[in-house]
Simulated scan of single mutants.
Amino acid sequence: MLTHDVLADPIALTRALVDIESVSGNEAEIADRVEQALAATELKVERFGHTVVARTELDRPQRVVLAGHLDTVPLHDNFPSRTEGNLLWGCGTADMKSGTAVALHLAVTEPAPRHDVTYVFYDCEEVDSARNGLKILADRSPHLLTDASFAVLLEPTHGLIEGGCQGTQRVLVRTTGKRAHSARSWLGDNAIHKAAPILERLRRYRERIVSIDGCEFHEGLNAVRIAGGVAGNVIPDECVVEVNFRFAPDRDEEAAAAHVREVFDGFDVEFVDSAPGAPPGLDAPAARELLAAVGEPPRAKLGWTDVARFAVLGIPGLNFGPGDPNLAHKQDEHVELDKITAVADVMRRWLHG
């Protein structure tokens, strides 16, 4: 059980959450602890699998969402946590148990915010989208989210506002040839060699930089995997280059796909994964208030986050959390203790106006 003293201190709460192993698919224990802590408040608490939702019912004129995921990537000799000076080390410290701890701390210690608040603590963010607890909640019980006018996802941003997110697509660009014995290669048609123009197009590609609401989104089109070959003495008859396109949120998925097809015109292109981006969402009144509380200019979220799920529901949202995104998924993942305190203080001021 998370004690009152731990819940009252976002640093101690971060440490406590990090010390509950919760690799994706193993969130039962941490969800139990979160549910128990919320059940002791006046919030209305519901649980869906290992996703926990808690709502204020104060009849405020506006509702906001604070959301954080409970899971981590697999451990890598970085569990349990350890503290050295201003740093807390351990799996999930940056991505994103420090942000989740801030949300849980506020849920327990701030009973009368000026906005109604929906707190969402969800599972399986780090794995396949079909298992994502926020996605499942949005698909099955959207009414728990759609009455909100703004959302904050406490993903790692190092204490700065990161607006929106990039969209992402993965495609397979395929070449085909004809098998033959490598000693008589002229009898075949080498599919790996035929992939050279694909790589050359990628090498020569120049990314687009788009400014939206003062946030600069850098696009990127990159080969991330290549596969081909049959045996050490066989001319290959197929080669597949896997390409990831990270696109600015001024493109929808259809426009992004059209761009990819244009780049690889003449090749067989198969789309295997796609997710939309999200605009920065900085025009919402609650967003402007949060920006004022932070006191620093926003920047673009270079990556995909679940703010895109809120955008699909018509809810503007942004990312704001204490962790450093550059440390996410690394063995030496850590978070600065003063960043946890600073983000908690900003969120508390924002919730009280």
Rank of each mutant, 00 (worst) to 15 (best):
L160Q: 12
G266I: 01
T72Y: 10
K339I: 01
S182F: 04
R131M: 11
D265Y: 13
K178F: 01
T14P: 05
L137N: 04
K194D: 00
F264V: 09
E289H: 07
I30C: 08
A191P: 13
F217V: 00
G281V: 08
V73D: 06
A231W: 12
D332Y: 13
A16W: 04
A148G: 14
P298D: 08
I209F: 02
F79M: 10
R33N: 01
Q62M: 06
N26Y: 15
E110N: 12
T56I: 02
A255Y: 02
L38I: 07
A292I: 01
N319W: 12
A28K: 14
C165Q: 10
R309V: 05
H115E: 02
R299A: 15
N326E: 15
L153T: 07
G214T: 04
M1N: 05
A180V: 09
D95R: 00
R114A: 15
T14D: 05
S22P: 13
P142T: 00
V307W: 10
R114S: 13
R174W: 02
F264C: 08
D237R: 10
E262Q: 15
N132P: 00
A103T: 01
H218G: 00
H4Y: 04
E46Q: 14
G232N: 12
D128N: 12
V210E: 09
I11Q: 14
A328Q: 06
H50Y: 11
C124D: 12
L88G: 10
R184D: 05
V108S: 02
G163R: 15
L160C: 09
V45P: 14
V234C: 05
A227L: 10
C91W: 11
F150S: 14
A284K: 11
H4M: 08
A223K: 02
H105D: 03
F245C: 11
V152N: 07
E270R: 09
T175F: 08
A293L: 04
N319F: 12
R131I: 00
L160Y: 09
V18G: 05
G49N: 08
I20F: 10
D123V: 00
E242R: 13
E110K: 03
L104G: 03
A103P: 08
P249R: 15
L88A: 11
R140I: 01
L88P: 07
R246I: 11
